[in-house]
Amino acid sequence: MELNYISYFNEFEKEFEKEFESLRNASDDILVIAVEIIQYIENKLKEIFKWLKKHVFKTLQEEIYFFKELKPRMVSKLLFYKELLKVETSLPPNKKHKRKHYEESLTRIHKYVVNNKDFYEYYRSRTSVRDEDLFIRRSYKDIFKYDCYLINYDSKLSTSHDFNVATIIANDMLSGHLENKLDELNGNIKTKYNPTNNKITWTGTKVEFAEMIYGLYYKKMLNGGNIDIKEIARGFSNAFNIDLDEKALYRCLQDIKKRYPLNAIFLQNLSDVANNKFRGEDF
């Protein structure tokens, strides 16, 4: 891969992530944060697109990596904060209606998965057999083979499915946000880190924690599978300083089952984050 290409994006992403984190921690008001981040990302994407119109990738692998990995990582953040802004600014005042509002948003995400099942499974599998068809730019004469939304984009800036990847990543982030909000409404407040406690503290939600231990239980990764889920929950709750009794564990399981067909949101997102990090370091 061309040295300038690597250097450009290493520096660009480093600067981008630094400013992004700064904006994300600049206020306690999530709506203020969302507006600031949306404006910031849109400006940074303009820089990328200006560069992209002139840049010639040396190999197909370079172009695929850019449109399958690099561009979606940025665009997904923009999509997430735009959708978050839409969800939170239309939030009803009543607690019951709030719960329904968040659940309806989760349902829309699940419907997206169902409607895009083939590509969703392809992307999640991390295979590459169709990458040249999905993540290489095409001329306008070929555009009608692909999704309709592509007509609104410059063919020099987009492939047929890089936006789909960004949407999947954004939906993962949005699902986490919605799950956290539902946890708060249900009284399952996210665990806060206590610096005076000499334990490793779980700082995700109880549903995410339950998803992890159920995954280990179903995979039979502990005691060769000869252990009850309640024992695992007790052991892990003690180790990670979180209160997850039998009733809470059951409620979390019911919440996870309601997500069908996208049940293991946290584990899938965990896998995606790890794969992106591994791929980024080795590329």
Rank of each mutant, 00 (worst) to 15 (best):
N4W: 06
Y8L: 14
E17F: 15
E17I: 08
K18E: 15
K18T: 12
F20H: 13
R24S: 03
A26M: 12
D29N: 14
V35M: 05
E36D: 13
Q39A: 12
N43W: 01
F49W: 04
K54N: 14
H55T: 05
L60M: 07
L60N: 12
Y65T: 06
K71W: 09
L84H: 02
E88G: 04
E88R: 02
S90D: 03
K96H: 12
H101R: 00
Y102A: 06
Y102P: 05
Y102T: 02
S105W: 06
L106K: 09
H110L: 00
E121F: 12
Y123M: 00
R130K: 14
E132D: 14
D133W: 11
L134W: 05
K145R: 14
K145Y: 09
C148T: 15
I151C: 11
N171T: 04
D172V: 09
L174W: 02
L174C: 08
L182W: 01
G187K: 14
I189L: 10
I189T: 11
K190F: 08
K190D: 11
T191R: 03
T191M: 05
T191W: 11
K192F: 11
T205P: 04
F209V: 06
A210H: 05
M212P: 00
K219G: 04
N223F: 14
N226I: 07
I227Q: 06
K230W: 03
E231W: 05
R234C: 03
G235V: 07
D245I: 02
A248S: 12
Y250S: 12
R259G: 05
P261W: 07
N263F: 01
N263S: 07
N263G: 01
S271A: 12
N276E: 15
R279D: 15
E281C: 13
D282Q: 14
D282Y: 06
F283D: 15
